[in-house]
Every structure is written in structure tokens, then in C-alpha cells.
Computed example of a mutant assay.
Amino acid sequence: MAVSWQQNSQVYRRYIRNLATLYETRQDMRFFIEAILSLIVISIFGAFAIRPTLVTIGALNSEISSKRETEATLDQKIANLARAEELYNKESESIALLDLAIPSNPDPIHYTRQIEGIKKRNNTTVAGITLGAVAIVGSADDVRQATRTSLSTEFRAVPFPEVARFVPYALDIRSDYESMLGFLRDLESLLRPFYYDSVVISVSRLSTEELILSIGGKIPYFDPTKAVPIQQEESE
């Protein structure tokens, strides 16, 4: 085993000496070896130098793609806003009527004035008007529970949206049949709707020609702070 190792060692030494001799005597061999070593060194240093550049290029490509998606989203939002503005301008008159029909606050005084006008037009007598709890100052939520447990419990309440706001409203009318019929027609034609919970007609004790109409219900209004956003349907 020792002899074999020594023989191999001598062979390797002779091989290295021959390479050294060839490197010193032959110019082409010297150029070939130097070229190989130069390529190895360049490859090693190039790998360390190019890798950060490649990582940076990849990050920039990802950022550019993200910016393009953001730009497309913003363009779509701008287009939607332009269409919304066009639709708003087109329907501005209808929106003004809608604000009158469903005001942004309870405003029972304005509605009562309209009732007074109907009363005079039809020669009827308003015997009484009763309102439920109304938020004059502050949030409507402060009186919402009181509203539900006051007048509305006295009526046979009809289904009403949970997010809607309303003022419980009741009135008693005295008149003959024709005048009362005209009063009801005018009440139905008001721009602001009236949701009936109960309607009771009785004959006056003083005169058989006089009828008593008792109406209980709700007049709605819109609270912008409690608006439910419309979910945009995703396009398939």
C-alpha cells in the first residue's frame, strides 16, 4: 500500500512538473490556462454582481405591474364618477322632488301645514293631531326606541323597513262624507307619503251627517347618516 501511494505521488509530481514546463515553454498553453482562469474569476465575481441587479429588475417589474393595476382601477373610478355626475345632472329635478317627498329630517311642521291646507280646501275640521317622539336635536337613534313604543304600539303597525326613519302621526277629522272623501284624496296626492296603520270612521253623536275620521300611521324621512350602501354586483 505504501509503495502504491509513493508511485502515485511520483506520477502526480511528474504530471505537475510537465504542466509547469509546458506553461513556461509553450505560449499557446499559457494563453489557454490564463483564459480559463480569467473566465472562472469573471464568472464568480459576475454572479455576485449580477444577482442584486436581477433581484432589483424583478422587484421593479412587480412594482410596474402593481402600478398599472392601480392606474386601471383609478381610470375605472374616474369613468364611474363621470357617469354618476352625468346621471345626477340628468335627474337633478327628480332628486329635488325626492328631497321634498322624503326629507332628510322629520320635519312634521311642514307636513302639518299641508294638512291644514287640505283641511281648508275641503272644508273639514281637524279635531286633533298627535305626533310621536321626534329627534329635534341630536341623533334619531336617541328617540328611535321611544318612537317604536309610543304611538306605533297603539296602531296595527304595517311592516316597515328596519333602516327607515319615520314619525308616528295621527289625526282626527270631522266633516260630512263628501268633504271627508275629498280630504282623503288630497292626502293621498301629497308628495310626502303617509303609511296607514289604522283608519277608523265613526258617526258623530251630535249629528248623523257628521263623520269622524281617525287616522294613524307614519310619515317617513331619510337619515343620510344611516344610509345603507349599495353593493356593486361583481361582473362574472
Results as ranks from 00 to 15, higher is better:
Gln7Gly: 05
Ser9Gly: 09
Ser9Cys: 05
Gln10Ala: 14
Arg13Asp: 13
Ile16Ser: 05
Arg17Asn: 10
Ala20Asp: 12
Leu22Lys: 13
Leu22His: 08
Tyr23Thr: 03
Arg26Ser: 12
Gln27Cys: 11
Gln27Pro: 03
Asp28Cys: 02
Phe32Val: 14
Ala35Thr: 09
Leu39Ala: 15
Val41Asp: 15
Val41Ala: 14
Ile42Gln: 01
Ser43Met: 01
Ser43Phe: 13
Phe45Tyr: 12
Phe45Val: 09
Phe45His: 03
Phe45Lys: 02
Ala49Asn: 07
Pro52Arg: 00
Leu54Asp: 08
Ile57Ser: 11
Leu60His: 06
Asn61Gln: 11
Ser62Cys: 08
Glu63Met: 03
Glu69Gly: 04
Glu69Val: 09
Thr70His: 10
Ala72Tyr: 01
Asp75Tyr: 06
Lys77Asp: 01
Asn80Lys: 13
Leu81His: 02
Arg83Tyr: 01
Glu85Asn: 08
Tyr88Glu: 02
Glu91Ile: 01
Glu91Thr: 10
Ala96Val: 05
Leu97Ser: 03
Leu100Thr: 11
Ala101Val: 01
Ile102Tyr: 03
Ile102Met: 00
Ser104Arg: 10
Pro106Met: 04
Asp107Phe: 09
Asp107Ala: 05
Asp107Met: 04
Tyr111Ser: 01
Thr112Asp: 04
Lys119Ala: 13
Lys119Cys: 04
Asn122His: 08
Asn122Lys: 09
Asn123Glu: 11
Thr125Arg: 14
Ala127Tyr: 02
Thr130Pro: 07
Leu131Glu: 08
Gly132Thr: 00
Ala135Ile: 02
Ala140Met: 02
Ala140Trp: 03
Thr147Cys: 08
Leu151Ala: 00
Ala157Phe: 05
Val158Ala: 15
Pro159Phe: 07
Val163Phe: 15
Val167Glu: 10
Pro168Leu: 03
Tyr169Met: 08
Asp172Thr: 14
Arg174Gln: 12
Ser175Ala: 15
Tyr177Glu: 14
Gly182Lys: 02
Arg185His: 14
Arg185Ile: 10
Ser189Asp: 14
Ser189Leu: 15
Leu190His: 12
Tyr195Met: 07
Val199Leu: 12
Val199His: 09
Ile201Asp: 04
Arg205Pro: 14
Glu210Cys: 05
Leu211Met: 13
Ile212Val: 15
Leu213Tyr: 11
Ser214Met: 01
Ile215Lys: 06
Gly216Tyr: 02
Gly217Ala: 12
Gly217Ser: 06
Pro220Asn: 02
Pro220Ser: 07
Tyr221Thr: 10
Phe222Gly: 00
Phe222Thr: 01
Pro224Asn: 07
Thr225Ala: 15
Ala227Val: 05
Pro229Ile: 03
Gln232Trp: 10
